[in-house]
């Protein structure tokens, strides 16, 4: 099926695509900078004596979740159209894994 969806003349929308790519590049650089920044904060949170483990551990976990979202949406293109099914499977997997871990933490007590 893929070979039927070729664009007839690739030069037609080159302007549009260039603009789109530039915009995307901007997003990627912004999120990349943010990710480095978040990583620095995480290192700082662990290194700083004033924060106890009870604060630092959930805090860096939260930062990790934010980074995963950046990674998925800006670098792995989940923000684009046509990624509904991968998203469904990702979130399906997250739900199954979460319920499993949740069961262990609440009722099974391994």
């Amino acid at each position: 099926m893929a070979n039927h969806t070729h664009v007839q003349n690739p030069k037609v929308d080159v302007q549009y695509r260039r603009k789109k790519n530039a915009e995307e590049m901007k997003h990627q650089i912004i999120s990349f900078t943010l990710m480095i920044f978040l990583t620095l904060i995480a290192f700082f949170a662990v290194g700083y004596e004033g924060f106890s483990a009870w604060f630092a551990v959930p805090f860096i976990l939260l930062l990790a979740v934010v980074q995963v979202i950046f990674q998925l949406y800006y670098f792995m293109h989940m923000s684009h159209k046509g990624h509904e099914l991968p998203a469904l499977f990702l979130y399906g997997g997250v739900v199954v894994a979460f319920v499993t871990v949740w069961a262990f933490l609440t009722i099974v007590w391994i």
């Binding site: 199954v96 319920v99 499993t100 069961a103 009722i107 099974v108 007590w109």
Partner: peptide
């Protein structure tokens, strides 16, 4: 199918709630 695995382990001693 993913929510029921422990029914193979009822006699392991997971407790009445599980």
């Amino acid at each position: 199918g993913f929510m029921v695995w422990a029914h193979h382990m009822f006699t392991v001693g997971l407790g009445p709630i599980a």
